[in-house]
Each structure stands twice: as C-alpha cells, then as structure tokens.
Design a protein around this nucleic acid. Structure first.
Lengths: 211, 211, 211, 211
DNA sequence: AATGAATGAGGATTCATTCAT
DNA sequence: TATGAATGAATCCTCATTCAT
C-alpha cells in the first residue's frame, strides 16, 4: 500500500536529479570548452557547478562519463532536429537543412566545441557521437545531388565529393564560431549564409556567359 | 677562438644537436598524434625517441616547449612552400595553391593533426601557428576573388565568404585524412580534387542552361 | 510518566530498536566476513541490511562501533555457554568443553571469522573480546592438567604448555572451517573430534607397549 | 662492443635496486604488521622507508604488488629451509622439522604476521603463498604417521587428524609470538618446545600405567 | 651530454559521516 | 525515525621535472 503521491514524488525527485545533472553537464561543458577534456579537472568542474568534488560522483560515474553524457545530449538534440528531414525535395529544403545545422551549433555552442575537440583524438566519441550524425547529413546531400545528376540538372559530379564540398563550406563558416573566434550568427545572417553556400554549390561564383 | 677548428667543431656539434632535436620532435609528433598532447607523457616520447626521459630536457625546456617547437617547424615548412605564391594570376594558380596545401598535410600529417587538436583549445598555438598561416591562404584567395569581382568575371559575392567556402571545401576533404579515417591522397587524386574544388567554386554543379 | 502505557510503549519501542540493531549487526557480520572490516563499506552494510546508509548512524555511532558491537555480542554468547563450566571434573567434561567451543564457532561462524581477523591487528578487540575468552578456556584446561599432574595421573608436564597444546589442536581443526575452506562440523563429527583431541592429549598416538 | 665492466656495473646496479626493494619491503612489512594491509597507506610505507611516496612506484607497481612481494619472499625463505626435508625418518627428524618451522617465524616475524593477517581474508594470498607451504609440512607429517600406523607403531589414528593436531599445537604456541603478545623463542626454548610437542603427540600426557 | 633515480604537486575516485527534510 | 544528498578528508597513483653522477 503505497502513498498515492508516490509516483508524483518519484517524478519530482527524478526531475530534481535531472536538473542537477543538467547543471553539472553545463558546468562541465563550459570547463571542457575552455581547457579541453584532458586538462580539465574534476575540481574545476565541481567549482564551476558550485558543488563539492565528490558530489559529482553521485550524478556521474566518472569524469569520462560526463563527457559521454555531453556527447549523448548533443546527439539527441541533433536527432530531434533532423528526424523529420527525410529527403531534400528542393533547393529550399537544402537551405533549411543547413540552417538547422547552424542552429544546433548556435544553441549548443560549448557542447559542440567540446565534442569536436574530443572527437579529434577519441575514436569512441568520434565514431558514436559525431560521425554517426555527420553521416546523416552527408547522405541527405548526396542523395540530393545523385538525384539531380541523374535527371541531368547537375553536371556529372561525384555526389560524395559534392556532399563533402557543401559540408566543408559549412564547416569553414561554422568553425570560427565554434572555436570562439567569431560571434554566433544572428538568424538573418544564418539564413543568408545558407543561401550563399547553396548558391555557390549550384552556380559557383562565375558570371554566366549567357542567361 | 683558441683553435682554428673551433668553428667547424661547433657547427658539427650544432648539427648533431639539431639532428637529435629533430629526432625527438619526430618521436613526439608520433606520440601526440596517437594520444593527443595532454594524454601523451614525457616517458612515451622518450621511449619513442629511444632516449632517457631526462635527456629530453637537454633539448627542450618543457613538454610544452616540444609542442611549440613542432608548431614552429610546421609553420616554417608552410612558409617555405607559400612564400613565392604572392598573387594568384589565374585559375591554374589557385589549383596549384590548393595542391600545395594538400602537399603539406600529406607530408606532415602527424604534425598537422597534433597542431589542429591543440589549436582547438590553446589560443597561443592557434593565434601564432595556425591562424597566421590560414590567413595567408585566405588573403590570397580573397584577393583572387576581389580581383575578378571588380573586373566583372565573378558575380558580386562577398570575397571573404568565397575564400571561406574554398577553404571549407578543402577542409571537408582534408579533415578525414588528417583525422586518420581516410588514406592520404595520391598525387593524381590530389590534382583531381584541387581541380574539382575550383570547378565547383567557379561554376557550381548545375548544368549551364546555355553555353 | 504521563501515561500508564508509557513503559510498555517504551519497551515495545526498545524491542523494535533492538531487533533492528540485530538485523544491522547480522548484515554487517556477513559483509565483514566476506571482505574484512577495512574493505567493507558502510554502503555495503546498509544495502545488505536493506536500509539507507545514514540510517546506520541512528543505531551505531560509527563503523567501528558496529565492529565492537559484534565483538561484544559474540563475547556474550560465549560467556553464556561457559559460565556453568566452572571446573572440569573428568575427561568427559573436557570433551564437552571442546564440543561447546566448537558449537560457538559453528553457530557464529561469520562473527568469529571477522573477530579473529580484526583481533589480529586491533589490540582493543584482541584484549577485550578475544583474549579474555580464550583465557577462560585456557585456565580451565590448565587447572585440569595441574590437578592431574599433582595427583600423579599425568606426567609432570608444564600445564600452560598442555593447555596451549589442546587449544592449538583445537585451532588446527577449527581454523579451516572458520576460514571457509572446510564445511562446518556435523554434531557427530564434532563429538568425534573432541574425543580424538582428548585422546591424543592423554595418550598420544603411540601404541602402548603394555596395558 | 660494450665496456668489459658492463656486466659488473649492471649487477652492481641490480644489487642496489634489490637492496632498495628489500628496504621498502621491510618498511612495508613493519607498517602492515602494525595496522594491517588495508589500513596501511602508501604514505605510511614511504615515510617508514624514508623515501617519497612516488618513489615506491619505481620499485613496485602497486600497493598490492608490495604485499605480493612480501608473500613471495616469505615463501621463498620457507622453500629454501624445507627443500631438503624430503621424508621424516624418525622422531628426531620431526622435532627438527618443527624447529625449522619455528625458525622461520622467529626470523621473519613481521613478514609472517602480515602474511597470516592477509591470508585470512585474501584468497589469492591464502591459496598461493600460505596454503601451498602449509600443505608441504602437513604432508610430511601425514606420511610420518601413515608409516607408523601401518607398521603398527602407532594406533590406527587418522593421519590427517594427527597432522592437524601437530600443526595445531604448533600454531597454539607460535601464534602468540606472531601476534606480538609473547617474546620470540630463544634457541633453547625452541628446541624444548619442539620436543614437548612431539612428546605429547607420541605419548600424550598421561602416565603409563605400566612400562 | 646522458641518464637513472627521486619526488612534489596534483588528479580521479572513494568513503565515513553529517545534515536537512 | 529514516533517508537522500552532500562533502571533506583521505587514498592510490601519475607525471613533468630536477638532480647527482
């Protein structure tokens, strides 16, 4: 015979725990973004989260576990954003895809920064939390290009290369923001950039000799 | 000057010291590339270089000093390669620029991998050893675009954006190699890629409606 | 005394508290026996007792206090068993003494295992909770021997040595059970062993040349 | 082409390392004997050995490794002492066996104390470093008894029980010394005790009714 | 110049205990 | 009373760096 409130209480407690976990993740993310995972100490994180160092271990099993949790989180945000984008119908859809991608970076700047830094040397993070998602986007763009190549709208470029080119352009623009060397995009800027990238992809920068 | 041979002896000694420094740097580079700077230990490096751990300190003041030396080295290689490329005369020159850039990555893969990883979190490395060089390339490309925009050959794109787009495409193709997920380029592949990137930049992927 | 029931209530509460204490002690004993005192954590004990870790501290002042409580308990059980055995009248009494001792080990195997382990390094435990009781038995046996030596039934052996020999034989048989390397005794085995030990003590293993 | 002294130098260095290892083991043994393995800290050991805490780790891989080294050492001393004692020819041989066993305890008191304490809870230590050796002695005694039982010199006692009895008596006498509650044996005392134990085993304490 | 040895300054993690509810 | 949460104080261990030879 349990108290009728038990469920509510449990969920209230769960929420409290979740909130605390989020706070710690946020703090850890800030620290990781500043010094990188390896140079960050659990003490740094605890101080940033304003809790005792040992309290960390009530919420996460290890320092690495915190990193993984950040990776998972970012992955989930990504998935939520991209689950509907099944196929790119037209140019506008491609632009929107890029805008969405920029959104994630803008919103979760520090998370992503940490993730990218660690993925660079850590194969598990790279494989499971970064590559998996990049592949999603890459495949969408590849399909987009393959489509148009076979219908004769595009020149017979290698779709893989095209996709990489788009992602690369995207990266070239996003990385300075991620790295902290440029201000995050305003929504208008974001839209403009997505447009420009697609423009270059489609038509290049050269003036059409005729048209 | 006690002895007429002093200079020669000194320089012979200098050469020996320089050679040893290079060996240590090479060893360190391999280790850094494997585990990242922070996770690499001086013991790892010494073992790889087949010397005693303390001997490192006869050649470098600290672990960080080794990293900086690697950064300097890579920067110098870069500069040697790019010092003549003062202005990009034509399309071929741009292609060659990209090929040269890919060259460096191919040749000094490990150096670059380490450098990028560290630059991601270390502002000094970033500023002095990475940004400086990227800026060189960026400016060359920007000038190239500005030129053509003002002479009406290119649409009025923002030159900065164009430069970034090129560097991004380049990055998108080079990063998987750097990260170790793809095999380094063969010279033929390299040339092809450079061509393709410039093609996309100039004309995009869309079929010309008329020509 | 506000209420006539107060005493009863108090004693009912006391009993509840006592019961809980016993449960905790039993749980702690099991854990200590498995990992030893130092390696056992309060969390282990709380889990085994199926209570919250902090609840332990409503019943015991510290982890060490739990150990002491176990030691006391075991001591009391011992005393209850040996209080009547004031003097050893005859051979049968000696056999019974040993059987009783084996009884305690059999019944409170885990308690004893822990106790012995801790007594080995902890002087307080050793002095107050182990030595005291061993001395009781030793003195009984010594008196038994002294008696018979002075009445000429025994050779003039040193009674202390004899007592030690008996206790040692006893230990040699009991220790593997305590340590968990042999199964506990059945009542029949127990009786047999006690007989054998006394036999050896009295007559050794050598065949009497005449009798 | 190495220096002719290389071997000597190597062995001198080896000896130095061995000496240091011994010093550390001795220090650790003292500490373990005082507080037990679990309660002893690496800092305690380092202080006792008068070296820095981290220096320990140049000689041993872990705290547990130190314990194992102690166990090995003690085992080897034992083996050296008992390797010749192949079969017990006669009563004198049995006495000598016991004397030798007491020797080990006397010489390496702290080592043994530590070992026994840890064997009580640690199965690996128990199995590989204690049981193995005890078994050696036990089998020797068992064979001794079996022999005499079959030749009719001994009553038909169970040899296993007899062996245990002897080892138990031995333990009963040795344990207080090990535990630090009694002074170590003088050589004379040692001989006397071994004699007495064998006497009791053979003839018990009871006066022969006839002889 | 080269190095084996030594170590101080941490670093991640554990745990007995306290405290607010 | 019971307990989840929090934590300070260790604990084992690592590592960049120094030093004596």
């Amino acid at each position: 015979m349990q108290n009728p409130d038990d469920n509510q209480i449990a969920s209230r407690r769960d929420r409290r725990i979740q909130r605390k976990r989020q706070e710690i993740l946020a703090a850890a993310t800030r620290i990781f973004a500043q010094k990188g995972y390896a140079a960050a100490t659990t003490k740094d994180i605890a101080n940033e989260a304003d809790i005792g160092e040992s309290t960390l271990y009530s919420y996460f099993a290890s320092k690495r576990d915190i990193l993984i949790a950040i990776a998972k989180e970012t992955g989930e945000v990504f998935d939520r954003k991209f689950q509907e984008a099944r196929g790119l119908e037209n140019r506008a859809a491609l632009v929107e895809l890029l805008e969405n991608a920029m959104d994630i970076f803008t919103e979760r700047l520090d998370f992503t920064r940490t993730l990218v830094a660690e993925a660079w040397i850590d194969d598990e993070i790279f494989e499971n939390y970064v590559m998996l998602r990049l592949k999603t986007i890459e495949l969408l763009i590849e399909a987009f290009i393959t489509d148009r190549v076979s219908s004769g709208v595009f020149r017979p470029v290698e779709p893989g290369l095209g996709a990489r080119a788009v992602m690369g352009m995207f990266a070239g623009i996003v990385i300075p923001v991620l790295r902290g060397n440029e201000a995050p995009f305003t929504p208008e800027k974001r839209h403009q950039i997505a447009q420009d990238v697609v423009d270059v992809l489609l038509d290049g920068v050269r003036v059409r000799h005729s048209d």
